[in-house]
Amino acid sequence: MNQVTFPVLDKRVIIFAGAYGSGKTEVAVNYAAGLAATCSEPVSIIDLDVINPYFRSREAALSLEAQGVRVISPHGEMCHADLPIILPEIRGEIERSEGKVVLDVGGDNVGARVLSSLADSFGRGYEFLIVLNARRPFTSTVTGSLKMIHDIEISSRLKFTGIISNTHLIDETTTETVEEGYRLACAVSTEAGLPVKFVSAVGEAAKRLDPETIGVPVFTLKRQLLKPWEEKDRAARSSKNKGGLVLCRV
């Protein structure tokens, strides 16, 4: 059994970026919830995903708000839009002096470009973390991962400060999957000169990790962005789809 601790990062602003589908949103949402549970300061999450039309952190807004996390995302019907909306309050939130801010950035260099418009706001008080998933096609090798780091740094005008090893296959994730990803993250770490800040993994896979193998903190994820057929919590299901017209013949 591994020590499952919440890996608190000291910086006020924590930015998660990476390749499409590396699991940034799941890590960011879980991390914001974890911060809210462990810190006394106010915690907010900024949904900066201007790439994906679905499965964004704003979809976990209800649950996050319930856990004390302020969610900053486009309002009203615009929350469903596939437009690159950058709210004016985002800059204000980043430049504030108190509280913790988590940024969930869209995938690849294309998604990270939005950061370049905010780059001047970050000052020195931020962590810029690359979320790596070795089971994704373009980051399955050291070379591919280094290219991703390079491309994102150029488009965002920010330098990464660390790596999050988040290798997974959703519900097919095993301990071996996580360990294999950690090995890649370590190799990338050596080449890029960036520390691996933590390993993140879903509950069962995280529990069985060997602390001898993993030399950094392990952050246990609870999946927040479930597909509609995966939601087993009947109360959570019922809270969805309110207000719509229901079509039936009975």
């Binding site: 009947r234 299901r237 789809n241 039936c248 009975v250």
Partner: peptide
């Protein structure tokens, strides 16, 4: 019988379950 949602709303398992139970109760 038919059960559907539109507009981008995805039927939840709960809605389908309730509808099945309604048919069985008829």
């Amino acid at each position: 019988e038919f059960y559907g949602r539109t507009g981008g709303i995805v039927p939840t398992p709960e809605e389908v379950r309730d509808y099945i139970l309604k048919i069985l109760a008829k």
